[in-house]
Amino acid sequence: MLKRSFRFHNTGANTVDKKEIDHFQNFLEEWWNEFGSMKALHSMNKLRVPFIRDGLVNSGRIRDKIKTPTALEGVSLLDVGCGGGILSEPLARLGCNVTGLDANPNAIELAKHHSEKQGLKINYAASSVEEHASQYFETYDAVVASEVLEHVTQKNEFVDACIKCLKPNGSIFITTISKTNLAYFLGILVSENVLRLLPRGTHQFEKLIEPSRLQRILEDYDCRTELIHGMCYNFLTNTWHWCPDTSINYALHAVKIKSED
């Protein structure tokens, strides 16, 4: 089942780290267990889905259908690093035309399998965003990179590729872990070793990025940051909350500015 041929092959230069892919293999089955090792990603949906939804509504890209079951109808959205589809599926349910990318073909298999069972139409592809950008220039109304940037070594190239896929005036949504001592302590040491929320080795400190640096990179690629929110996790109740403090986890919404020429 895992040996299908993919439209996108993992070739050439990209920002995907080989070690990272192997690591994810180990807990693929765990993806869809809402109370298993991915529970923090599942529960994060209660924060990040409204963040994306309201961001798109507020940026005026879509008509306000917030009171309907398909508030994001007709929005084309690219979910970069979609994994098993934990975020792609709710976005598709809200009416988005979702394309989910993940460099790990096994994750994509799993995602396809699950979304079919759910009766959702999601276009999943095992590919890096760099490859995707070369074919799908300025295609999407929105690009989402949620909890992936902390696994990427070459940040600039990654962000550049994401933004290439985005239509002018389109929105990019990023959630990631900040690069502070506190984030290192809570986000990595405690959650991987003490609380075992994540398997050991999930995150490496050098790959983390603080909000100000991310904002500068986005500016370099013609994106104006609209909003940065801190996110706090309560591991006792497995719930996320918005907070002013962006020193551990944060969410960012930026809009691609129409080029002058």
């Binding site: 809402e34 599942h42 529960s43 949906n45 209660k46 409204p50 599926e89 976005l91 349910r93 809200l94």
Partner: peptide
């Protein structure tokens, strides 16, 4: 639940 794209019987 529905406005967050969750299934109607989402246990959380």
């Amino acid at each position: 639940a529905v406005s967050c794209g969750s299934v109607i019987n989402d246990l959380s």
